[in-house]
Amino acid sequence: MVAKTVGLDAKRTKTKFKDVLEIRSSSGYINSAIKAGIINRYPDGTFNLYI
């Protein structure tokens, strides 16, 4: 919801996270939020999508 509100790109894309595949519908929002500095990854390189 935050990503949509601030107008982040939703297009599916490859991310830096080893647990977020490009085929996930959320991959574009996650990648856009990283680039915008809104979120960061865990030290082990994951997003922990399933927490």
Rank of each mutant, 00 (worst) to 15 (best):
M1W: 07
V2K: 06
A3E: 09
A3I: 11
K4S: 12
K4F: 09
T5D: 14
V6S: 07
V6W: 09
V6P: 13
G7H: 03
L8D: 02
L8K: 02
D9H: 03
D9N: 14
A10I: 03
A10G: 05
A10K: 04
A10V: 00
A10W: 01
K11A: 10
K11E: 07
K11L: 01
K11Q: 11
K11N: 11
R12E: 14
T13Q: 12
T13S: 11
K14E: 00
T15P: 02
T15R: 01
K18W: 03
D19R: 07
D19P: 09
V20T: 08
L21P: 06
L21W: 11
L21S: 14
L21D: 14
I23L: 13
I23G: 12
R24H: 08
R24I: 05
S25Q: 08
S25R: 10
S25H: 10
S25C: 11
S26C: 05
S26P: 00
S26G: 01
S27I: 06
S27T: 03
I30N: 13
I30H: 13
A33Q: 09
I34H: 09
K35Y: 00
K35L: 13
A36D: 10
A36M: 12
G37Q: 10
G37I: 14
G37Y: 08
G37T: 12
I38S: 11
I38Y: 06
I38H: 04
I39F: 05
I39Y: 04
I39R: 08
N40C: 05
R41Y: 06
R41E: 15
R41N: 10
Y42E: 15
Y42M: 14
P43L: 02
P43T: 01
P43D: 03
D44A: 06
D44H: 02
D44R: 04
D44V: 02
G45R: 01
G45K: 03
G45C: 09
G45M: 04
T46E: 02
T46V: 02
F47C: 14
F47N: 05
N48M: 08
I51S: 05
I51A: 12
